[in-house]
Design a protein around this nucleic acid. Structure first.
Lengths: 187, 187, 187, 187
DNA sequence: TGTTAAGCGAGACGGTACGTCGCGTCTTAAT
DNA sequence: ATTAAGACGCGACGTACCGTCTCGCTTAACA
């Protein structure tokens, strides 16, 4: 008999949350702020999201930009293409800030951690595909543990941008790619 | 002429801050809590640290965990030894939580960013030394950009533990080390 | 549409404020103390009263102590009866302290001044009535300015108790009353 | 060999205190403010004055404007002259605010109360003289209790200005004087 | 096709932490 | 040994968000 939770309210909340994050950053993210900006009542927000954190997560979850899955015919070409496509995204400061915020929060909040895992899994699908294609072509040994290889491909890049928060020019991307491919093919 | 800011108060505050972080985690970190635990008045804390965040930063800055600089005679041996030594530190949940918190906060707070840079620089000295030794031995080509190599060595590991927040057993460490060394020596 | 400010919270706050004033005096009056004693959150107190001072004012405003309006049939009897009734009230130290506090604060805070005016007006109604009755009986000349007469009747007493803060025994009350009545009837 | 407490520091403190009171009013009066304005260290202030309140009192004590002691040859003339001289002083808002502040504080602080008593005693000397002169001339009965008469003369005026905080024009001053004299001579 | 329970906006509520201010004491250097 | 300067412990200030609650109202599903 009762009215169901309206998608409209949920959508408005998430949209407002994304705006707030974009404008004020993660530290300016506030349930009150989202409520005010969205026109959705706090009560309603808490009806849809069990906590402010969950709203945050869901908002960010919806920001996911699907990464490209290049297919150049060679492992090295694919990896270079992938990294070149991803760099500008990560180079955006608000993006970096947001992702780090999630990673940090995920370390404390199990629910958020779950979402974060899922996000990561999704984000890494292109790499996995690239590696599988390389195995299919015989370029990459079939006994390479793809899960570890993922870390090996994404890691240096993430470390540079997110952890050390240092710039990375195109020449350096190529060198990194070279090292990665060298490692993978050395097997 | 006036009494200088007492090191004692500062030290007590930082010690208490570290305790608070250890016990309650970053999200339980509170100037009030530190004041209560340290016996140092909140006012005094703000005399020493311009904000709660700065206290946090300084406290973490003092948590320096000097990583070992192994010297086994081979690049591969050194890298494996290093990773094996570091894993248990990062495996501690509170440590991970704290480091992620800093990384996240550093993306918003320039002052914190500075401290974070310095921490990272320090933290990576062992790897740099390992690589330099390998170059000295002729194991590693002299034209390898060491700064990039740092990302290449640390990256996969950090990505696994901090970003994906997945376990990493000893066998996997060996495989990762193998890939890394393969990449470095392929040059 | 929203829930209206609850009278309950306001009332509890004011009651607690009055208790605090009674127990600790005006200088012990603190928003925190009121919050603690009342169980009303400080935030809520500030929702109802724009400042601690306003809470104070309102609390005092509610402390109305209605003075008696004697009717003994003679001006002198009425005045003596009134003064005798009022002395014990003013003799209470906390009462004196509080009233002086208000008077003092009223000199700086317009809002408080308004309340104070109203309190005084109310407090002096009995005297005005006494004087009007005396005029009705023909005891007091009709051309006596009642507003000035109020000062004349209340003044000596207040001056003694509040300004000079000296004791006043019953014999002295009678002498004062005699002087006052003498002055009023001399016309 | 020790240097005695310097009068200079004391004087500078009091001067600055008076300035602070004049500029910011009683509520802006602060030991820190006085220290800053005077260049006298807080320590020194506390060496000269046992509390901020005492400094306040002493500062105000030095503001005392000696009231005139008219001698017109008649009680009525003297009283009128006195009141007319005093009204403009009390009409100054800062003066009123300050005096009320002292009265209020005196109700809580015994030391301050003592000073206040002394101030009042001093302030009322002219009236006492006026009354004594009237007794000497035989105008006023010798059995009138002068202490009570003081209240009788000053009270209405103070009540009007300080307690009710209402204006008082010249005509009203005359009427009040008339009532007072009437009361005193009715004996 | 009403009825009615729930959704909804608005925002009050009890909390906790924030960063600031004034207090009165204590410490240091300089005179 | 007094002074200027100001650090110190303390405790109140008024504010911001938190997550919960209470209001009227509106609306969709069932009867």
């Amino acid at each position: 008999m009762p009215r169901p939770l309206s998608t409209e309210a949920r959508d408005k909340a998430i949209a407002a949350a994304q705006e707030v994050i974009a404008i004020d950053g993660l530290e300016g993210f506030t349930v009150d702020a989202v409520a005010k900006r969205s026109g959705v009542a706090k009560t309603t927000i808490y009806r849809h999201f069990s906590s402010g954190n969950e709203l945050l997560v869901d908002a960010i979850d919806c920001m996911v930009m699907p990464f490209p899955t290049p297919n150049t015919g060679s492992l090295r070409g694919d990896i270079e293409a992938f990294l070149e496509a991803v760099v500008p995204v990560i180079d955006e400061h608000s993006m970096r800030r947001t992702m780090l915020g999630i990673m940090s929060a995920a370390a404390s909040d199990p629910e958020l951690a779950r979402v974060h895992q899922e996000m990561m899994r999704q984000r890494m699908t292109p790499i996995r595909t690239i590696l599988e294609l390389a195995q299919g072509r015989g370029e990459l040994q079939p006994d390479v543990d793809l899960d570890l290889a993922l870390d090996f491909v994404e890691g240096p890049f993430f470390f540079r941008k997110m952890v050390r928060q240092q710039p990375l020019n195109e020449a350096e991307i190529h060198q990194i790619a070279e090292l990665i491919v060298g490692g993978l093919l050395a097997r």
